[in-house]
Amino acid sequence: MISLANPTRFLSLVGAVVPWLTAVVVILLGTGLYLSFFVAPPDYQQGETVRIMFIHVPAAWLALFGYSLIAIAALGTLIWRHPLADVAAKTAAPIGATFTFIALVTGSLWGKPMWGTYWVWDARLTSMLVLFLLYLGLIALWQAIEEPGRAGRAAAILALVGVINVPIIKFSVDWWNTLHQPASVFRPGGPTIDPSLLTPLFVMAAAFTALFVLLHLIAMRAEILRRRVRALQQTQVARAAMAEA
């Protein structure tokens, strides 16, 4: 139980932070949604569909943020062997995958009026799709290995291999895209964005980030408790075996 001493302090910290953070998320998300849907003007070119961007761009940002978080936590698992690092990485993966999925769905919804079809093999969307596959691989690896310690280290190795590959994949997909589709498509979040759209975008980005952190803290708390239950059960099994012997 020595290794859980530190998580105990973490648990009480989570308990103190969660109510406040929930309030922050509600306020930011409420303001952001209000700004995005009622205050921001429709784009002269894209019309009302521009509002999808207020969800799409923050979700895409958090998709990358989640993977970077996992990679940093992977270093924590492999180098410093911190017990919280693996918990942080494992619980960040489904949340990051969900935001990646949201980015993919909103991107495709936004693409329908723009490109006339739900899915275009646009460089950004394709890279996002590969990132989603990387998330799925990580989650599957965690699920497949029963012993949490071994699962955590295996996933950490995979996450580091993945993070080295992400820029290479991005580069190759961009290359592939220019090869097959020389005309550049409209870039969301490019430099030509109007300031009246920027404020709601920033508020939404902050709201989504706070939401990510909130969900992550709650998931980490659940994971720590799940591991404690597991360790207690194992001790019981061992006691029973010793009583028999």
Binding site: L133, L136, L158, I169, V173, W175
Partner: peptide, 17 residues
């Protein structure tokens, strides 16, 4: 199955180039 899921995304650059 798991091996394919883990490795195929990493093959994307090899395939493209």
């Amino acid at each position: 199955l798991l091996l394919a899921l883990l490795v195929v995304p990493l093959y994307v650059p090899i395939l493209i180039f």
